[in-house]
Design a binder for these strands. Sequence first.
DNA 1: AGCTTTTTTTGATCTGTGTCAATTAGTGAT
DNA 2: ATCACTAATTGACACAGATCAAAAAAAGCT
Lengths: 247, 247
Amino acid sequence: MSRTCCLPSAEQRTPPQEVACNDCGLDPICQVLDYAESGSGIPDGILIRRMPIPRGEMLLAYNQPFRAIYAVKSGSFKAMTWDLSSSERVVGFFLPGDLIGTEGLAVECYSYTVRALEASSVCRLEIDALPQAGRSREAIQDALIAMLGQEIAMNRMVTTSLIQQNAEQRLAAFILSLARRSGIRGLDRQELGLSMSRSDIASYLGLARETVSRILTRFHNSKLIELRKHVLRVLDRGALERLSASS
Amino acid sequence: MSRTCCLPSAEQRTPPQEVACNDCGLDPICQVLDYAESGSGIPDGILIRRMPIPRGEMLLAYNQPFRAIYAVKSGSFKAMTWDLSSSERVVGFFLPGDLIGTEGLAVECYSYTVRALEASSVCRLEIDALPQAGRSREAIQDALIAMLGQEIAMNRMVTTSLIQQNAEQRLAAFILSLARRSGIRGLDRQELGLSMSRSDIASYLGLARETVSRILTRFHNSKLIELRKHVLRVLDRGALERLSASS
DNA sequence: AGCTTTTTTTGATCTGTGTCAATTAGTGAT
DNA sequence: ATCACTAATTGACACAGATCAAAAAAAGCT
């Protein structure tokens, strides 16, 4: 039950917000692995804890062969693909506790490129080495299946809302989703770091960046949020919720 | 390798378009199961082949506990959920060869309601009974993981296009997707049965049904498609492809 | 610091698509 | 067949949001 985990980093400057192992999406698998080794910790070469990733660095690339899945410990990332017209398109953001690359489990290659939006850190789980890692493959597979299922369910919800909501609703839902995910992982629910650019948000939500900007200031003016530089504070969660739900 | 499969149905009236087992999404699993029983066929109570489902009938319901996954043999289905304002929303269509309910593997309950759009037939795979079905659970799990991964990859592509394309592009992409899927499953690539209503298409694509109607007739007038009653014939696939890709 | 470059904001149009309304076609029942 | 009811088409109009353009603010760089 007690795992060798989350030792303080070498440099004592603690990164802004770091997720605890219990709250991390990788935890089910870490648990399985640790049970295997029963107390002795996870063998080297399978799980690397807390790799630092500098801002702007590419964590993994589209079509690159699948090797590992990552869990965000601190910081944030964006995932992008390119459509036929070679224009970039943001398909998701990863916050502390989120898993990156899970779908590679099935497709053999990563299906998007992931880049750090700020100085971040991740845990890296080597998939190739997994089968040798003692302990039943079954348990690991079960955990993976559950993770993939989660992913599918979440994707459907996101898609559904994006498609039928207008710009204001999309933004409200987006902000709430950031807050909710932050909350689930045991981090601050009100004060969010908007590490991504307005263009990234616009691309993700299928809007023009001007629209994103306009609506954010509209929210700001009606006291729904407070927004200075890249820190967003949720002032009236109820109002946002009503907005995003209204048909 | 040769499986007891796809015997002609009791009634000799062959349904319009039926997918062959080799082309079916369930095939990987059927193969695993059949290997287990090595020639003797799949034991009763695990896989039910070719259940007929009448038009309009509900195959499974939202929030109902997960029991089985289905593969469409013939006909077609639509999946729907409801948003907070209790309005129906179509989240997908299932054509011959498609799998229905896979995500239940992870979530324990179906996350949408599925209804037959026409007289159809499915194969039903009982999940509860699987573990006892001889043969390694591992192989089955691997197949499931692959299936889920496919689902995720496809969902992302669909979402991406829906979000950033305009109405014309969405319709073009939708038609092409129907044709492509039909082709993959070994069925007719040109002549498609549009078993769903314009409202269903509109809901799925996030458009008004008037818009769907208008654009379909526009396509018809420019000789991209031929459209009589509920049969759609692709006349100029290239043009549709160019349309759906143009930024 | 000062400079350049990028990002964000704000304003002014223009257009695609939703909405409302009316007609036509299709479907199913008796 | 005829009727009733639903689905699909077509038109007129309004408005959300894209696009174009320019100013303001932030971020990098030397």
